[in-house]
């Protein structure tokens, strides 16, 4: 029973840490894809008195002219008394950005654009953009705090478990030491427990990950966000496996080399 408890504490702590790492990574990936998606659909419209091919603003990824011929044609049909050939029509451009801008960044870009004499008007979707951006930041921050708290709790549980392990294994390791056992020999059974618990934790975490990523709720959210999210299970297993092994190996080394 005690042995089961001892396994459970480490397994549960590891699951908490692995799951928080996974969720943090997934959330960051989803956010990144979503930001990319927004930035793809986001643009600044400018009106210029002369043709533009480039602007010296690092945040701008492309400058695309807006074809206004069809609009002019409509106007010509509507206002037949106006001679459009004598009118000097300005140039319209759609500016794509490299990254999703923060409200401050957007203001800065606007300012930089207005510094050009030939740019007469700058149009941004600032109000809706600010709302989305603030929501994203809020989500990102709360998720970070939540995952951080879970990871801290996991580590606290592991530290508690280390104390229990020290008491449980001290006598055996001391006797081994009296006969000249090296560190790896003294810690062998502890390393085995740690290895086994890492594997169990990884399997259980992967099961939870599979359930989460195949749940209707998760898929609905991904569909709603309209992003192309693909989870590389192999990469996740490798990352979590290494993390799990490292945590349990370091914990057992601390017990083996630590004093009672």
């Amino acid at each position: 029973m005690n042995s089961l408890k001892s396994h459970l504490t480490l397994v549960l702590s590891l699951i908490a840490i692995l799951l928080s790492i996974f969720l943090f990574r997934i959330f960051s990936q989803v956010m990144h894809l979503y930001q990319k998606n927004i930035v793809n659909n986001y643009s600044i419209v400018i009106v210029s008195t002369k043709p533009i091919t480039s602007l010296n603003i690092s945040e701008i990824s492309s400058i695309n002219p807006i074809n206004i011929n069809s609009e002019i044609k409509k106007l010509k049909e509507k206002y037949k008394n106006i001679d459009f050939s004598n009118l000097k029509i300005p140039f319209f451009y759609k500016l794509k950005l490299k990254n999703f801008p923060s409200p401050n960044k957007l203001q800065e870009i606007q300012k930089q654009l207005k510094n050009y004499d030939f740019i007469k008007k700058v149009m941004t979707k600032s109000s809706s953009q600010t709302k989305i951006y603030n929501l994203l930041i809020l989500l990102k921050t709360t998720t970070k705090i939540f995952m951080f708290l879970i990871a801290i709790l996991g580590f606290l549980l592991i530290i508690k478990q280390l104390e229990v392990w020290k008491l449980l294994h001290y006598e055996r390791m001391y006797i081994m030491e009296l006969f000249g056992a090296p560190v790896w020999f003294k810690g062998a059974s502890l390393f085995k427990i740690a290895f086994l618990d890492s594997i169990i934790s990884l399997i259980l975490t992967m099961c939870l990950i599979f359930l989460i990523t195949h749940s209707a709720l998760f898929n609905n959210i991904i569909n709603e966000l309209n992003i192309n999210f693909q989870l590389n299970y192999f990469n996740e297993i490798i990352l979590l496996l290494i993390t799990s092994f490292l945590i349990s190996f370091i914990s057992s080394v601390i017990v083996v080399i630590g004093k009672k």
């Binding site: 006598e171 055996r172 006969f179 000249g180």
Partner: peptide
């Protein structure tokens, strides 16, 4: 060197110090 020395020694205790789970 302590480990090496102890490999050449045998120690017997009043309380036996046998590993209880073995």
């Amino acid at each position: 060197k302590t480990s090496l020395l102890r490999k050449h020694l045998g120690v017997v205790f009043q309380d036996f110090k046998l590993i209880s789970e073995w």
